Amino acid sequence: MTGAALPEIDVSDAQVLLDPFAAYREARERAPLARLLVPGMGEMWAVTRHEEARAMLGDARFELNSGSYLTPPGIPEDCKAYLRTMQEKDGPEHTRLRGLVAPAFTARRALAFRPKMERIVEALLDTLPVSGPVDLLRDFAKPLPMDVICELVGVPAADRPQWREYGSMVASGFGKGFVEAIPAIMAGAKAVVAERRREPADDLVSELIGVQAEDGDRLSDVELVTLVWHLVLAGQTPANLIANGVVALFEHPEQLAALRADDGLAPGAVDELMRWCGPQLLTTPRFPAEDVEFGGTVIPRGTAVTAAIVSANRDPRVFADPDRLDITRAGAAAHLGFAYGPHFCLAAALARVQAEVALTGLFRRFPKLAPEGEPHRTPDPGTWRLGALPVTL
Rank of each mutant, 00 (worst) to 15 (best):
T127W: 13
V130S: 13
V130E: 15
S131T: 12
P133A: 15
L136I: 14
R138Y: 14
R138S: 15
D139I: 11
F140E: 01
A141P: 13
K142V: 15
P143D: 12
L144K: 01
P145Y: 09
M146W: 06
D147M: 08
D147R: 04
D147L: 13
D147A: 11
D147G: 06
I149H: 06
V153K: 09
V153E: 02
G154R: 11
G154C: 07
G154M: 09
V155G: 08
V155N: 08
V155H: 12
P156K: 09
A157W: 03
A158P: 11
D159N: 10
D159P: 15
R160W: 05
R160T: 09
P161K: 05
Q162Y: 14
Q162R: 15
R164Q: 14
R164H: 10
Y166M: 11
G167T: 02
V170H: 03
S172A: 13
S172P: 15
G173M: 05
F174R: 00
F174A: 11
G175C: 01
G175W: 00
G175K: 04
G175N: 01
G175R: 03
K176I: 04
G177P: 06
V179F: 11
E180D: 05
A181T: 10
A181R: 15
I182S: 04
P183F: 05
I185G: 04
I185L: 14
M186D: 02
A187Y: 02
A189K: 12
A189G: 09
K190I: 00
K190N: 01
K190R: 12
A191K: 03
A191L: 08
V192I: 13
A194F: 02
A194W: 01
E195T: 06
E195H: 13
R196N: 03
R196E: 06
R197C: 08
R197E: 03
R198C: 05
E199M: 12
E199W: 08
E199K: 08
P200I: 07
P200D: 07
A201L: 13
D202M: 07
D203W: 05
D203G: 00
D203R: 00
D203K: 00
L204Y: 04
L204W: 03
V205R: 06
S206E: 10
E207Q: 13
E207C: 08
E207G: 10
L208P: 05
L208S: 06
L208G: 04
I209F: 09
V211F: 02
V211S: 04
A213C: 07
G216V: 14
G216R: 01
D217V: 04
D217R: 09
R218N: 04
R218C: 06
L219M: 10
L219T: 10
S220I: 03
D221H: 03
D221P: 02
L224I: 09
L224E: 10
T226D: 00
L227G: 00
L227Q: 08
V228L: 15
V228N: 13
W229L: 09
H230L: 14
L231R: 10
L231P: 00
V232M: 15
V232A: 13
V232Y: 12
V232T: 09
A234S: 10
A234P: 14
A234F: 11
G235V: 07
G235H: 06
G235A: 09
T237N: 12
P238L: 15
P238E: 15
